[in-house]
Structure formats: structure tokens, C-alpha cells
Computed example of a mutant assay.
Amino acid sequence: MTTSKRFYSIPYVLWLGLFVIAPVLLIIYQSFKGIDGQFTLENYRIYFSSSTYLRMTLNSVFYAFVITVIVLLISYPAAYILNQLKHKQLWLMLIILPTWVNLLLKAYAFIGLFSAHGSLNQFLSFIGIGSQQILFTDFSFIFVAAYIEIPFMIMPIFNALEELNPSLISASRDLGANNWETFRRVILPLSMNGVKSGVQAVFIPSLSLFMLTRLIGGNRVITLGTAIEEHFMVTQNWGMGSTIGVILIIAMIAIMLLTGEKRKKGGRRH
């Protein structure tokens, strides 16, 4: 049985090694190389001593935090209501469907909506408000990023709510708790694993959004993802781009550790 498990795990180990571990090791290795190809710590010195890179880091964390909070405030009530519906699996599929559409296509769709002559500005002009600068603003970037990330927050929360034992909710109400107390003391704590998984699924990608910063933010929103793209595609300073990539990887690991499920020591108490 053990030999069989090891045999079937070979494709997974190969995939993990070739497409996860190897690229990360290559990025770490490249981060210690200068433009001349020589081994150096200069990239890390520049990063930690530059106010520009530190400001980009703060911007990345700030925007990722704002996007995650907005998505969570929308997704939890949506997942809760969705879980109460009769045909909830059908409604969940309709929410997931937009994730099948290419990100670039969705970005260009929002460019058409938010542009100076787009549908939204035409509507604002029609009701007398007049055309507004919506595209290439912080608002447009956060709005589009939140829209794209919402399904990835709803799914884990929905699954966590669906796995709740209904008898626990019934017991809470039998003991005199009202709907709010039942939600606060029973439903919310028991669904926190879904919330944590959703935060990981939204916050981590939001740290490195660069396509939306270009197309929707118009380079007004500068993040570490934008800097990585700039170094790899424009300046050809792969060492500095890899250094920023290493910083992002460390930040992502930190978020996973902070939001991961903590194991209880000592077993279950009786």
C-alpha cells in the first residue's frame, strides 16, 4: 500500500518540483546577481535603502488590504444568503462563471465602461451629473480588482457555511439566543476557516496585480507587481526584479502563516 501511494505521488512531486520549487529557487538565485551577472548583495541593499521601493511595498500592502476588506464585506453576506437559497448550487455556479473569462478581456470591458465616452459616463451625463474621470483612478483600480476577486472569497466561505451542523444553530436558538447572537457566537466562529482561506485567496494575488495597474490604474497605482514587470520587461534588470519577487514570496508566506489554521496542542479536553 505504501509503495502504491509513493508511485501515484510521483506526478505530483514532479509537478511541484518543476513548476513551483524550481522557479522559486531560480528567482532566489537570480536575486543575488547584478546587471553584469556577478554575485552581489547590492540588489537587497538598494531595495531596503530606497524610499521608492519601500513606498511601493507599503502601497502594495495597502491596496491589497483595502481590496481584501471590501471583498470580504461583500462576499460574507453574499455567501450567507446564497447558502439559504433553494437552488444554491446553481447560484454559486453563476457567481463562478465570470472566473472563466480571461482577465485581459474583463479589464478591457471595464475600460469601455469607465472611459470618458463609456457607458457609465454616458449615464452620468444623461442624469445631469456630467462626465467624470473614472478610469485611471484609485477607485477604478480597487473596484475592478474587487470585482475580479469576489468569487474567490465567496467559494471558501460558502463551503464553510454549508458544512455547518444545523443542530448547532438549532441548539443555540433553543437556549434562547436570538439571530444576531447565534450568528456572532456560532455561525461566524465556525466559518472562520473559510474566511481565512478567502483572505489568502484574495490578499496574496492582490499584492502583485500589475495588469490592472497598467490598464485600469493607468500607472497611477504603483505596486511591487508593477516594479517587477518594469525590471523584467523594460530595464532588463532581472536581478532587481527577482529581489522584489523574493520579497513578495516572503510576504505571501507570512500571510499564509498568519491566516493559517492553528493546531491545538494537547489534544481535546474533556
Rank of each mutant, 00 (worst) to 15 (best):
K264P: 02
I204Q: 08
S119P: 03
A251Y: 07
Y80F: 15
E230V: 07
L135Y: 05
I250Q: 05
W100C: 06
L58Q: 07
I247P: 00
E163T: 13
N237H: 15
S172C: 02
Q30A: 15
S75E: 03
E230R: 13
A109Y: 11
L257P: 02
F232Q: 09
K265F: 10
T235L: 12
W91V: 08
I169H: 01
A251K: 03
N59S: 11
I81V: 12
K106N: 10
P23G: 07
Y47M: 05
N43L: 04
I35G: 05
A227P: 03
A251D: 07
I28D: 08
V186G: 02
S191N: 06
T213I: 03
F48W: 04
I95T: 12
Q122N: 13
M256W: 03
V24Q: 11
Q89N: 15
V221A: 08
A107V: 03
F210C: 09
F232Y: 15
K262H: 12
K106G: 00
T68W: 06
I169Q: 10
N83G: 11
P23L: 05
P156H: 12
L92S: 04
S125Q: 12
E261P: 06
I157V: 15
Q200K: 15
T40M: 03
T99S: 14
K262L: 10
I46W: 01
G37K: 02
I27F: 10
S31K: 06
E181A: 13
I96W: 07
I187L: 09
N159G: 11
S4R: 15
I253Y: 12
I46D: 05
G176D: 12
L94F: 09
I150F: 08
E149T: 04
H270A: 10
G241N: 07
I21Y: 13
N237M: 10
R184I: 02
I111K: 06
R185I: 04
F110P: 00
